[in-house]
Simulated assay, not measured.
Amino acid sequence: MIHLAIVEDNDATAQLLCSYLEKFSREQSVHKGQTPPPQTFTIQRFATADSFLEAYSQNFHLVFLDIQMPGTDGMNAAQILRARDSNVSIVFITSLAQFAMQGYSVSALDYIVKPLDYPRFSTKMHRIMRSLPAVRALDQPSILISSAGKRHVLSAQDVYYVHVEDHHVTLSTSAGTLPVSSSLRSLQNDCERLGLVRISAKAMVNYRFVTRMDRTSVTVLQPGSSPSVTLPLSRARSSAARAQLTQLLASGGRTGGTV
């Protein structure tokens, strides 16, 4: 699911943009042969940049931002937004294309010129969607993680293990150690898609990096970073985890070591 914000003071323009997004979503679903079509986007509209900035909590993947608005204008709002979140994608909405050229200073993804028409909008959206990290996370075996105010798209080769310590969840990854606010339980389904296996109430390991396993522990390699880490294998999960890891290792291979 892609979370969008529309920051536009003109009601008619905001409604038209919503209808175009819904149409684009339906067309993409039909193209992929999905019936009934799923809801690709969640959309939240803000009538002013000030109300948007006040409510912003880094939950959005893409922001459609009108440049000319009363109060804080779109360009100043984008500068404030970019200082808070370096990863969110910004698309400007403007009546004059030259205003959108200033968007390079805030790393805007694209711009849409008013008045809106669907053919041009659809062409823009295809390009925008190909560039969104959240879309790449949906189309590939990867997950989107928020950590310390930044978003990370992590593939199956990026996550070594997930561990809970002192009630805090951290991911050991190719990008370093990433603390997250989510619980291990809420992350489990996403991590399983990447090939991670739950070995205890406090840990999941990526089978690709398992180098050793016995009845009480699992050792995981961390390529190019810290030494291998040995994590406890709980008695309650031992049989199921060992069977699952053995099956995955047999079918998918591993980085190396002895199991």
Rank of each mutant, 00 (worst) to 15 (best):
S86Y: 05
S86T: 13
S86Q: 14
S86N: 02
N87E: 14
N87I: 01
V88Q: 05
I90S: 10
I90W: 00
I90L: 10
V91S: 14
V91R: 04
V91F: 07
F92E: 05
I93R: 04
I93Y: 04
S95M: 01
S95P: 04
S95C: 02
S95A: 14
S95R: 03
L96I: 09
L96P: 00
L96F: 13
A97W: 01
A97F: 10
A97Q: 15
A100G: 01
A100C: 01
M101Y: 12
M101A: 07
Q102K: 13
Q102E: 15
Q102G: 15
G103A: 04
G103I: 01
S105K: 14
V106I: 12
V106M: 07
V106T: 05
L109K: 04
D110P: 05
Y111M: 09
I112T: 09
I112K: 14
V113P: 06
V113K: 01
V113H: 01
K114Q: 11
K114P: 10
P115N: 03
L116F: 09
D117L: 00
D117E: 07
Y118E: 11
Y118I: 06
Y118T: 02
Y118Q: 05
Y118S: 13
P119L: 03
P119R: 00
P119W: 00
P119I: 08
R120L: 15
R120F: 10
R120S: 10
R120V: 11
F121H: 04
S122Y: 11
S122D: 07
T123K: 06
T123Q: 13
T123G: 08
K124V: 07
K124C: 13
M125R: 06
M125S: 08
M125W: 05
M125D: 00
M125Q: 05
M125Y: 08
M125N: 09
H126G: 15
H126C: 03
H126L: 15
R127A: 12
R127P: 01
I128S: 08
I128M: 02
I128T: 06
M129G: 02
M129R: 00
M129T: 12
R130E: 03
S131Q: 12
L132Q: 08
P133R: 05
P133L: 06
A134H: 06
A134M: 11
A134Y: 12
V135L: 08
V135H: 04
R136G: 09
A137R: 07
P141N: 14
P141D: 11
P141H: 07
S142N: 08
S142C: 15
S142F: 12
I143W: 10
I143R: 02
L144D: 13
I145C: 01
I145Y: 05
S146V: 15
S146F: 11
S146I: 09
S146T: 14
A148C: 09
A148Q: 15
A148F: 04
A148S: 14
G149R: 09
K150R: 13
R151K: 09
V153Y: 00
V153K: 05
V153T: 13
V153F: 08
L154Q: 07
S155H: 07
S155P: 09
A156Y: 10
A156V: 07
A156C: 09
A156G: 09
Q157A: 04
V159R: 03
V159F: 04
V159N: 11
V159T: 03
V159W: 01
Y160S: 00
Y161P: 05
Y161C: 13
Y161T: 12
Y161E: 02
